[in-house]
């Protein structure tokens, strides 16, 4: 009997810690929105809200892909450069072949993203090289390729097919396409991760790679899949980027990997793997974007944005760590009491 009661309250603690994360993001968002709206009513205008969701859409999409990788106790720093590469190359292809439509653009973008993800995945899962080093390397390789292809050129909105641009600006029933796509992808991925056996494997790998190997989980294949998905979503993100901004240069989305990682970690996906949801990650992305918009509305120096991103990331991992230590200590004491 004691085992059960102990178990129940343990579960209570652990649950609380993780539910607290998503709740606290929602709370932080609410406070942020309230304060900003009080200072400047325009913040909550239809246009203001639409801007925030449009801006958050791509970041959240990338955060969903990144969560997959981080849940397996890995990381993909190359996503920003993949977005840049895809935005430019797809834009280049579309500008040169006017007949192509939005479908081709999306397929092409995802294929390019998958190739990048494949390289990362192969190096990490079969080369057994630290993910951070590998993807830092591929980040620069992909960025360099992007520059080499662009060669200082710029893709202009006027050269792009109308169908692609309307993907970026259009809406259905008043809801813009971009956030709609992100929400659909998020729900699908979230459902898969929660409700399919292969989805649970990703959590198992991140929770204990050794135990996963012993339990017969195909570790390499799953890690590979995580990178492929992250690459594919980065590719899709690149196409959305092109559609939203129309005008792209080789430098686009550089440095975004930090925002994406921050969003994921702030959203409660543990950097040590095994814990977190894509919903949390997407919420984290929404929070970061809202902060950026709020800074503009509150007329704070926009140069603060990156510093705040970094500080939030540090805060998130520190809080996770402190909470984990607390839980461990509580469990230690409880076990002791039951032991004697």
């Amino acid at each position: 009997m004691t085992a059960v009661t102990a178990g129940r309250s343990t579960r209570g603690i652990v649950d609380l810690v993780f539910r607290a994360r998503e709740l606290s993001i929602v709370l932080a968002l609410a406070v942020l929105v309230a304060v900003t709206a009080a200072a400047n009513g325009n913040f909550l205008s239809a246009q203001g809200l639409k801007d925030i969701f449009l801006n958050a859409a791509i970041l959240a999409l990338l955060a969903v892909g990144q969560s997959f990788v981080v849940i397996t106790r890995n990381i993909d720093l190359s996503v920003g450069s993949v977005v840049g590469l895809v935005a430019f190359t797809v834009g280049d292809v579309l500008a040169a072949n006017q007949g192509l439509g939005v479908g081709v653009a999306i397929v092409l973008g995802i294929v390019i993203g998958c190739v990048c993800g494949l390289v990362n995945g192969l190096l990490v899962s079969f080369g057994k090289v630290p993910a951070l080093v590998v993807t830092l390397g591929t980040l620069y390789v992909i960025q360099g390729l992007d520059h080499a292809i662009a060669h200082g050129r710029q893709i202009n909105a006027v050269d792009l097919p109308r169908s692609v641009l309307s993907l970026g600006n259009g809406s259905v029933l008043g809801i813009p396409y971009l956030p709609l796509i992100t929400v659909v992808v998020m729900l699908a991925v979230g459902y898969y991760l929660r409700s399919y056996a292969s989805g649970r494997d990703f959590y198992a790998i991140g929770s204990s790679p050794e135990a996963a190997g012993l339990a017969g989980v195909p570790v390499r294949r799953r890690v590979m899949a995580a990178y492929l998905l992250s690459g594919a979503l980065a590719g899709l993100g690149g196409v959305l980027w092109l559609a939203r901004f129309g005008t792209v240069v080789a430098d686009d989305a550089h440095g975004w990997e930090l925002q994406v990682v921050s969003a994921v970690v702030v959203g409660g996906v543990a950097i040590t793997g095994g814990v977190g949801t894509v919903y949390g990650a997407a919420l984290g992305a929404l929070l970061l974007t809202t902060i950026t918009s709020a800074l503009v509305v509150l007329k704070v120096n926009p140069f603060w944005q990156q510093a705040i991103t970094g500080a939030l990331l540090l805060l998130a991992i520190s809080v996770d760590r402190v909470l984990a230590l607390r839980v461990a200590r509580i469990l230690r004491r409880r076990n002791a009491r039951h032991g004697s």
């Binding site: 951070l132 930090l258 990682v261 921050s262 140069f303 603060w304 944005q305 990156q306 510093a307 705040i308 991103t309 970094g310 500080a311 990331l313 540090l314 991992i317």
Partner: peptide, 10 residues
């Protein structure tokens, strides 16, 4: 990686 963003931001 966090302070990379923080210090550059500062």
């Amino acid at each position: 990686i966090g302070t990379l963003a923080l210090y550059r931001g500062l």
